[in-house]
Amino acid sequence: MQRTSALIAVCFCAGLLAALGNSIAAWLGGLWGITALFGVDMAPEFTRAWLYPRLVWGGLWGLPYFFVIRYLHLRRRWVRKGLWLSLLPTLAQLLFFFPRFTEAGWFGLGLGAATPLFVILYNLVWGFFLGVFARLLWGRG
């Protein structure tokens, strides 16, 4: 049971650290004008009020990763599994959070036609770092 709890904690922490990477990518994309170049209104300010909820959500989205790697024989291709898992927060953002809690509407198209592309891209960054950090935090065991 202890190893299970440790693996759950690793998944949460890896998701949190991956959210930091995702947030930096989103911030840099806005700062460098990449999103504006594609006509997307996503240029967040890097503040604590913006960052902290993203870190918590990243950790929570990291928890389902536990079910992907919970058994020893499943602990291969950590990054690939993280990339696949990144589809969950992507779909939630595009199909639930944008239309329900923002004025951006379905797929966030109110922010620009290329918004789904950036959501997918930024969440792939999260999935990549999820796999990397989970593997690093778990070690060889």
Rank of each mutant, 00 (worst) to 15 (best):
T47S: 15
W61F: 15
R54D: 02
T35H: 10
L51K: 07
G39W: 06
L51Q: 05
L63T: 08
L37V: 06
L63C: 08
L37S: 13
A36S: 14
R48G: 14
G33H: 08
Y52M: 15
Y52W: 15
R54H: 10
E45Y: 03
V56Q: 09
W50L: 07
D41A: 13
G29E: 04
A49V: 14
A36C: 04
W57L: 15
G30V: 03
V56E: 05
T47K: 11
D41M: 07
F38D: 09
P64D: 11
L51G: 06
L55G: 09
Y65F: 15
G29C: 01
G59K: 09
W32E: 03
M42C: 00
G58H: 02
V56K: 06
L51D: 01
I34N: 00
W50S: 06
V40D: 01
A43R: 15
L31T: 14
Y65W: 02
A36E: 12
F46P: 03
E45P: 01
W57S: 11
T35L: 00
V40E: 01
L63N: 05
R54V: 01
G33S: 03
G58L: 07
G62T: 08
V40C: 06
R54C: 05
G39A: 12
F38L: 13
T35D: 00
W32M: 10
W61Y: 15
A43T: 14
G29I: 04
G33P: 05
T35E: 00
F46Y: 13
R54A: 12
W50N: 12
W50M: 14
Y65A: 09
G29H: 02
G62K: 08
W61C: 09
V40L: 03
E45M: 06
G30F: 01
G39H: 13
P44K: 10
L37N: 04
L31E: 12
D41E: 10
L31P: 00
M42P: 00
W61E: 00
R48C: 07
R54Y: 02
P44S: 12
P53G: 13
P64L: 09
L60E: 05
F46L: 15
T47D: 01
P53E: 12
G39Y: 06
M42N: 02
T47R: 10
V40I: 09
L55F: 10
G39E: 09
G58R: 01
P64K: 12
P53A: 03
T35K: 04
G29K: 03
R48H: 10
D41V: 01
P44I: 03
A36I: 02
A49F: 08
V40F: 08
V40M: 06
L37D: 08
G58S: 05
E45L: 11
L31W: 13
W61D: 00
G29Y: 00
F46M: 14
L63I: 15
A36V: 06
Y52D: 04
P53F: 14
W57V: 15
E45G: 07
F46D: 05
L60K: 01
V56T: 14
G33D: 04
A43L: 05
T47E: 07
G33C: 07
G59A: 07
G62A: 05
F46C: 06
Y65I: 08
G30Q: 07
V56G: 04
L63Y: 03
